[in-house]
Nucleic acid binder design. Structure first.
Lengths: 339, 339
DNA sequence: TGACAGGATCGAAACGTTTAGATTAGCGTT
DNA sequence: AACGCTAATCTAAACGTTTCGATCCTGTCA
């Protein structure tokens, strides 16, 4: 900018005034300055501007795994929303690791992001500190934190799983295997609650041997399924509470020589774009990814627009059971239901 | 930092020296400073540091669509690599739009990213300017630019498609539909060349009616497939040169009442994690995503480490044909091959 | 004609760092 | 006792903006 000012024979203050439109500058100086800008190829340095203004027009976004299609979609929506609003987004993947998450959030804060959208991992102790220090607005995505009072958009996980399990029960399934992620995050906890409640509501026992947990990866789903399938009395259906893990479930079923839905029914949380075109067409609980992403972006943009003091808002969206053909009715349906 | 300095009764220079280890500071001052840092909860402002140092330890990454599984995976790998190296990554999705891409790259440069990884869109005129102005190192990903002389990592697209089409031909297919993306980017161009050459090598005609192009989205694949399937003499196999479009292809096949591979064989570019577990198990050309991401990251990290003057390096990796069960041999194989 | 309002322009401080160079203190040599 | 050397510390400028308040000019009005 100094060079521009010199070339146009004006002060830097005038250049700044013209660029930002913060004061009127005469036509002739404007012309000179604009010419100089073109000649020099000047571009305003956003870092210097950020330092002075105290705002970076950048937000931080952390998710556990970007390869999980649910997060992929949400990230995509959020990215677009902030792009439209003229914000850049720094993306971090925490790989479901608490320390990684802490490091990344610190890194983002060091870089003076204006806001944070976090699909958190672990117990959120650091997050609590951040929110309370209240330097930047943060919105929680998908997963909320007990002690942390801030904006959030989540799914009614309990209800969604309740409905899915109830659907399986109505098909005649009595032994329903359940594969969960680590239970220290709310969605996994709530989904598990939905599972238990559905069984209880149907008067069925909750057998611990039917519940397995893994760390969200395909391999974990594979191992969990292997265990379920080698039970003395194996389940007739399996519900996987997480999207990548269900791939592992399907591989395990294949490797053990069974087929779905003939030998075993499968349903899972989170939809895939290809669910209704490959066989078996998976019955899933679809999250409204578009809405989730947009709402999260809107909540944060609203705070960034200056609405800092409004009380925390918590949006709870509804999942939708997408019934396809990966779950089959058991022969005993009629009797079981009438029993 | 000023506050820390005051609290510890030292100068800011000493605080800086201690934090960065750029000079020795006596044990007693160190203790006082560290205490003050803890008391105040001081965190270094990365923006101010960036301004002074001229480096942000942030890189920009632009891809056309993050929801394309190929890019999802590559982004994930790149993100991890830079995370390990202490860099943040700003992610932009250009949505296959040239103007969007230009805007985003400008935005990234304004923010003084230290480097750029670009899976480009369009003819790359702006990119050429950027690379030539040589302020920041850029590595091209997946797609190269004619006039732009910079680091790049790409696939041998031509060979990969040549092999895939040859495979179909060996199965006995003679009319092979081909669905491409817009041909202004190198991979699409090269893949198309591979298609033509494979046909020519087998002495088959290249019929323009069998070639359809779309804009990379599922719906484009759907429409293109619909057109191919309504041809007077419809193809016995379809190859989709892009990953999301093949979903559209499968939907079109389903909607028209055909099935794969019984009525029509399908293969495509880019692998899916679930390819070998759902039916039909798609035959695909798998790109080495892990290697691509790592190589791209390494090329850029090497430049960032100071190796600015080395000549541009272009890495060409090989695809791998993953043969599954979505392509069936035609009855006429024996005769055709011996003919 | 002189005072003054108002618009255009400018000078300089500030944002929070890093760092070159100056200063100081301590200590062994001669 | 004077000297020089080294290590520790400090002062102040610089990075590229924004912005407050000051200055300058022009024209209007009494």
């Amino acid at each position: 900018m100094l060079h521009v000012a010199e070339a146009a024979r004006v002060s830097v203050a005038t250049v700044s005034a013209l660029i930002n439109g913060t004061a009127t500058v005469s036509p002739e100086l404007s012309a000179r300055i604009e010419q100089a800008i073109r000649d020099i190829g000047y571009k305003r340095n956003a870092i210097a501007r950020s330092l002075k203004m105290g705002t970076t027009r950048t937000i931080g976004l952390t998710v556990p795994h970007i390869t999980n299609p649910f997060f992929t979609d949400v990230v995509s929506v959020i990215q677009q929303a902030f792009d439209r609003a003229g914000y850049a987004v720094m993306l971090c993947c925490t790989d479901e690791d608490l320390n990684t998450q802490d490091d990344q959030i610190k890194l983002l804060l060091d870089r003076m992001v204006d806001g944070l959208i976090v699909a958190r991992v672990g117990d959120g102790a650091l997050l609590k500190g951040i929110v309370e220090d209240a330097n930047v607005p943060v919105v929680l995505l998908d997963r909320i934190c007990e002690g942390v009072d801030t904006d959030a958009v989540v799914l009614d996980n309990q209800r969604a799983v309740f409905d899915a399990i109830t659907y399986l029960i109505n098909l005649g399934h009595r032994r329903i295997g359940y594969i969960t992620g680590t239970s220290d995050i709310t969605p996994m906890h709530d989904r598990m609650t939905g599972y238990r409640e559905a069984l209880q509501a149907a008067g069925l026992p909750v057998s611990e041997e039917l519940v397995r947990s893994g760390n969200f990866h395909e391999i974990d789903g594979y191992n969990a399924t292997m265990q379920l399938l080698s039970l003395h009395e194996r389940p007739s259906a399996i519900f996987s509470a997480n999207n990548p893990m269900v791939i592992g479930t399907m591989k395990a079923i294949r490797d053990i020589g069974l087929s779905c839905p003939e030998d075993i029914s499968v349903a899972c949380f989170d939809d895939f774009p290809w669910s209704d075109v490959f066989q078996p067409q998976l019955t899933t609980v679809a999250q409204p990814v578009q809405a989730i992403g947009e709402q999260a972006a809107n909540l944060l943009l609203d705070r960034l627009a200056g609405n800092r003091d409004a009380p925390p808002r918590k949006l709870v969206l509804k999942g939708r059971l997408m019934i396809r053909n990966s779950c089959r009715p058991l022969g005993t349906v009629a009797q079981s239901l009438s029993a």
